[in-house]
């Protein structure tokens, strides 16, 4: 089984927003970063993955199973990591391990204790008194202690200081040494992804714009700068979005080879960061509406 999550022809209608006929595959054994502007549909898609929302149409499969007949089995193997522990706020980690443990077949209390130590978490303090970073770590410790194969996180690094974020990324990398594991997380901090992500999924208005290995993005996309008189109807075709000013143009291409052939040394080409790709792609998308 190569894909750990599979969406086929998913539609979901809301008043203001809808997803139509969405396909999405998440590869097993890798870290996939999930990016897109606010309101692009990230949380909706995560909720569909978790069965917290049900699609109007289409099929969601996790570990090759659907939620209708295998909900419990799927949930056993997913760790949903988030910073708000709505159910357990007043409880301490010690209480939680007692309550959560019986719910999971694979709960490993020794493992849990080891992670609590490693993450330097207090066992007897109520969770609501934890900082955001500590809550994140607590949630992760619980997920890893029931041996979750798929870890889904909604903006795990938002609001964390840089040192803490780095620590969390190191933990993710450690988790990935085990090839059975998959991490899927949404984020606005694209520099987190530059370092550790294997695949990037970009969505915009409920549509998947791309789902690609990160090196492919680096090879195919580039920021191109040059003089505006190089642009005409034909050459403009090589770009996703062009910004013109009195001093020249700046544009995003997803076809580095073609641009090299067309313009040679007449333009300057730079590697496009994920942030730049997001910015220009979003601009291009709203232009076509």
């Amino acid at each position: 089984m190569e894909n750990v999550i599979e969406f086929r022809g998913i539609s979901k209608k809301f008043k203001e927003f809808s997803i139509e006929n969405l396909d999405l595959q998440i590869k097993r054994g890798y870290i996939t970063g999930f990016i897109g502007a606010n309101g692009a549909g990230k949380s909706t898609i995560i909720k569909l993955m978790m069965n917290l929302l049900q699609a109007d149409k289409g099929e969601v499969k996790v570990f090759g199973m659907d939620y209708f007949s295998h909900a419990k089995e799927i949930k056993e193997r997913i760790g949903f990591v988030y910073d708000r522990n709505v159910f357990y706020e007043a409880l301490s980690l010690k209480d939680i391990s007692r309550i959560v443990a019986p719910a999971y077949k694979c709960w490993n209390n020794k493992q849990f204790k080891a992670y609590v130590d490693k993450f330097e978490l207090p066992l007897n303090k109520p969770i609501k008194k934890f900082s955001k970073g500590m809550q994140m770590k607590a949630s992760l410790a619980i997920a890893l202690s029931h041996d979750a194969e798929l870890i889904i996180m909604d903006e795990p690094t938002a609001g964390l200081d840089p040192a803490f974020r780095r620590e969390l990324l190191d933990i993710f990398q450690e988790v990935m040494v085990d090839e059975r594991r998959t991490i899927f997380f949404s984020t606005h901090i694209t520099s987190d992804l530059d370092r550790i992500a294997d695949y990037i999924v970009l969505i915009e208005k409920g549509e998947v714009l791309f789902n690609k290995p990160i090196y492919e993005l680096k090879e195919r996309y580039a920021i191109v700068k040059g003089s505006t008189n190089l642009l005409d109807r034909d050459t403009e075709e090589s770009f996703i979005k062009i910004e013109r000013s009195s001093t020249g143009f700046q544009a995003l291409t997803n076809n580095v080879e073609e641009v090299k052939e067309l313009f040679g040394d007449h333009v300057v080409m730079e590697e496009a960061s994920l942030e730049e790709i997001m910015f220009y792609v979003k601009g291009a998308h709203s232009q076509h509406d």
Binding site: Y30, D170, V177, I214, Y215
Partner: peptide, 13 residues
């Protein structure tokens, strides 16, 4: 996977 972790880069790289 060990090398990716040690170099602090992605597995796919």
């Amino acid at each position: 996977r060990q090398l990716a972790k040690d170099l602090k880069i992605s597995v796919i790289t």
